[in-house]
Design a protein around this nucleic acid. Structure first.
Lengths: 174, 174, 174, 174
DNA sequence: AATGAATGAGACTTCATTCAT
DNA sequence: GATGAATGAAGTCTCATTCAT
């Protein structure tokens, strides 16, 4: 993951990956038929890591708004916590290397958020827009926010989260 | 541009570009020293197209909110109008192929928007957050929105723009 | 043998051979030091099969001509009966994979035929040519004849054997 | 051709072929998409050489028998004259590398011989067997004869040709 | 004795770039 | 200035062989 994101997929030969992994090239090919398959597997691995992380970081809370922002924060935290994962996703999310099939598999993690938003819409708290409209909006804000955070000093980051969450919530709330 | 985005940068040989351009490979190299330089030039060309498009589509209007949304809409329209440009940018924006220098050059187009936001903040219309926070937020919403629009039928697109702009404005407004 | 001839030696990995043989790769290497050695062993195995087959199919007969043609027919029958053996031999006979040593070992099977021809020459029945000339001639006719037979429908084969043997005998007889 | 036959197809990397040809590997790939295609092209090139050679070496003669033997001799001569061509054909004739399509293209050279044999059958000079039976028979004798000739000293060769042609003709003649 | 995961040399092929025409 | 054939470094992937289990 590190090599792939630092140098770019194209600029990372399998030999370099094998070396970094402390193994032979052939060994990798025993587990992943092609470089592409390896990359797709990393994609799904990150997604599973993310699900695990999100699940641990979110708890049932009284208010729906607080629950929602907890989720948002958890996504942010995961990506800032594992910047290599973020960099990997950022570069490959929309690349043709990641198969549609893999992307679909990766979407399951959003189910709880989806449910939360639906509830908020029913209760008249969240704007009654199509789910796609809301999800893509959230994803967009998240990606650029994390990218920005990772580009600045670690110490300077905390001050921006509240602002960001305020914007996100204002955008969504009825 | 078309080839580069459809097949991916790596999967597009210079020979294919030359063929599609109806010229010889050598001729391209007379104008661009490397493939990378060509790609950076396309990047800047798209940016210049965008500036031109935005300038044409925006007029002085009474209300700052309307002016702002006009800009937002213009950005959206440009990308939907030139999906190849969007695809190119979407794929290469964060790639190491585009040099920092090129990226900086490309940023000038945002100056009018920047100015507009500053004005809005002074007037107490827009949240008093750091400019970076706002710009990255806007960029994020824009990218995913356009990507979404391009993924659905052309006829279905119109209905979503107002929703999107409402979310964006709610996020920004004081 | 089947794999080796169907796919070609190069396109048949040892792993595939092991799988088809219902054993592990390591086990094969306990018996044959290299892939080449395995192939040479198969070569000799086929030759031994052939000798056995020929011996069973030929009996002492009164006339030398009949004896000779019985041999010829036995060779033909063996190869048509075991088309995989023929395919193996046909492909590898002249390949550098089969060592000279192995080829020499394989020649012993021709001794009875050789003896028969010598007798025929003494008796003035067979042309008094060098033994090599005759043997290579016979081998040539045999190979292409079997290859042809295997390329046509099984039912159509019988009609050609007599013609073939007539040509062969006419060629040899004084 | 030389490398391919001396070392075997598998043991001859394209890099070695390029080196021997005094060119770069890439250059070869500008003309032949794959190694296989190169080998098929060599096959057809040899066939064309052979046709040219045969045509030059054969003339209209009075007797059909003489005409026929002239053809046979021409085939023999070609292969002995260009032993590398023979070695190439001998090794690859029945290999799956040579496509059926290529083999078909290569068969045209036999047309004149075919015509000659048909004439001989009409005139009651040649056995009335199926053309396939005769052609495969001839091909078989030819291949092994040439292989034998090439395995012995050049000076010793002449003595055997008449014997061989006598056998071939006796086999065919009514 | 049997096994098969691990290995890395080496195969084929691609393609950015050059340069003689 | 335009061209595209030539080039070879470098990439992906295969597979004969080993050896710890």
């Amino acid at each position: 993951m590190k090599l792939l994101t630092e140098k770019g997929v194209q600029a990372t030969p399998m030999s370099a990956i094998a070396k970094a992994a402390g193994t032979g090239m052939g060994t990798i090919y025993n587990y992943f038929a092609t470089k592409e398959e390896l990359i797709n597997a990393i994609y799904l691995y990150i997604k599973s890591l993310e699900i695990q992380f999100i699940t641990q970081r979110t708890h049932d809370e009284s208010s729906l708004k607080i629950k929602f922002l907890e989720y948002y924060k958890a996504f942010v935290d995961f990506n800032i916590h594992y910047p290599e994962c973020f960099a990997f996703m950022d570069q490959l999310q929309n690349s043709p290397i990641i198969s549609e099939c893999t992307k679909d598999e990766g979407k399951t993690e959003f189910l709880p958020v989806l449910e939360l938003i639906r509830k908020g819409q029913e209760d008249g708290i969240i704007k009654k827009m199509s789910m796609d409209a809301i999800l893509q909006f959230l994803a967009g804000t998240l990606t650029t926010y994390v990218r920005w955070m990772l580009s600045i000093e670690e110490n300077d980051r905390d001050q921006y989260l509240d602002q960001q969450m305020r914007m996100v919530w204002d955008a969504l709330k009825e």
